[in-house]
Design a protein around this nucleic acid. Sequence first.
DNA 1: AATATTTGACATGTAGTACATAATGGCATT
DNA 2: AATGCCATTATGTACTACATGTCAAATATT
Lengths: 241, 241
Amino acid sequence: MKSEKRSKGENNFINGLEPIVTLTMADRVEAQLRKYLKEEGFKPGDSIPKEIEIAETLGVSRNVVREALSRFRMLGLIESRKRRGMVLARPDVLVSLERVLDPYILTKDTRKELFELRLILEMGLADLLFVRKTEKDYEALEEIVDREKLAKKTLDRIQCDIEFHAMLYRIAGNNVLKRFQKLLLPVFQYVVEYESKHRDSKWPLVGEIKHQDLVNILKSGTPGDFREAMYSHLKPHFDHV
Amino acid sequence: MKSEKRSKGENNFINGLEPIVTLTMADRVEAQLRKYLKEEGFKPGDSIPKEIEIAETLGVSRNVVREALSRFRMLGLIESRKRRGMVLARPDVLVSLERVLDPYILTKDTRKELFELRLILEMGLADLLFVRKTEKDYEALEEIVDREKLAKKTLDRIQCDIEFHAMLYRIAGNNVLKRFQKLLLPVFQYVVEYESKHRDSKWPLVGEIKHQDLVNILKSGTPGDFREAMYSHLKPHFDHV
DNA sequence: AATATTTGACATGTAGTACATAATGGCATT
DNA sequence: AATGCCATTATGTACTACATGTCAAATATT
C-alpha cells in the first residue's frame, strides 16, 4: 500500500505504462496476515501464531513480522503479552483516525470535504436529538447560551460556539459520533480560521437563527423545525459550498 | 498507546495508585517522533532524519525506530526511498479506518452507533444534494429504480437498494463522504442482516416513501421536502433506535 | 493433602551486526 | 548532450543474542 505517486506531473506521457509496485516485505506480511486472520475466522480473544512461526512459515525474518505486527498493535487489532503470545483485540474505530487527522498535513480539498461532512452531520442530527434529549440537556444548553451572551472577547464567543455544538453531539447520545466530532474539531477550526482570513468575515459566522432559537425549537418544536432552523443557522457556511 | 486494561475489576482498591504504564519502546518512539514532527512544523515533502540518527539520538536500537516508522508508513504519513531517506507525505484520511472497520471484530455497540451514523449522514445529505445534482443524476437514479422494480430475487432488490443510496452519496459530490460510506457499507449490511434474523422482518426495510418518490422530490421538490421524505423512508430504521 | 514457593521454559521486547538493494550524483565515454 | 559506469549511502532484510515477564510444573512448607 505504498503510494507510488510520481514526483512531477511528467508521467503518463507513455500511456499504459504503470510504475512497478514494489511492496516491502512488511507490507506483504501485513496483507497476508490480515487475509489469514480474516479467512480463518479469528475473533477477538483468539490467540494468533507466534512471531517465529509466522516468520518461518512465510519465509521472512522475524524482524519483518514484527514490523507488521507493530502496525496491528498500534491500531489495537492485537495485544501481546510476554510468554502468552498475541491475541486479537477489539480495535477502537477512531484511534486510527486520530493519528492522521491533522489539518496541517491534509490537502485543502480534504479539509473542505471534512468541513462539509460537519455540515451534513449537524443537519442529520435532528431526529436523534429529539429521541434522546432530556430536561437536563436544556439546562446545559441554556447555560452555554447565557455565557455566550455575556462573552466580550471574540475568543470566548468562539469557545461558547464550539461548546454549544459539541453539546448537541453529546445529546445525540452516540459515542462514536461525539468522538468523531471531537477529532474533526481542529479541522473545522482550521478551515474557519482560514476562510475568515481570506474574506475578513466576522466570527462566529452564524445565520439568522441563533443558538437561543435552536434551544427553543429543541424544547417545543419538531425535528423538521429543528432541521430548518439548523440550516438557517449554518447557512453562511453552506453558502461557501 | 497500549491498552492497559486490568484483567479483573480488582484495581483501585488502593486509591490514588495508578498502574504504571509500561509502553514498549516502539510506542514511545512513535509518540516522540510524532511530537517532534509536529513541534518542528514539518510539512508534507520535508525529509526527516535518518533512521540511525533517530535511533542514536533517542538511545534505542534501529530496530525499534523501524517499528515506529513502519506504523507511519502504513498510515501514509511518510514515504521512504532507499538512499533518499524518508519524507513526510499526505496521508489519506480513510486508509486508517479501512484497516479497522470490520463488522466482525467491532462490538455490538459500535456497530449500532455506526449504523446510526448512517442514518444521520443520509438525513443530512439533502442540502448538498440539491446544490450538486444534475440532469444526468436523475437518469442514473431512475435506472436503478427501474431495475429494482423488475428485480425478482430479494438479493437483487437489496443490491439495487444499496446502489440507490450509494448513488445519493455520489451525487453529493463529496469524495471523503462517498468513500466513508463505502467503508461503512459492510457494517450496515451486517447490522441489517443481524436485525432481520432477530425480527424476521422483510427486506429491504423501507417506509412509506419509496425510492421513486425520493427521485421525484429531488427533481422538483425542496431540500426540506427531501429531508422529510428521507425520514419516512428510513423510519423503520429510526424506530429501532 | 493442600497450599505456598521456587524454578525453568518460553514468547515477546530490545540491541547489535551484517549484508542486500536501489537511488543518487559525479565521472568518463560516446 | 546523452549515455553508461561507479562509488556512495540510506533503507530493507536477515540473523544472533540477551532481557523481561509470565505461565506451569516441580519443589518445599504447612
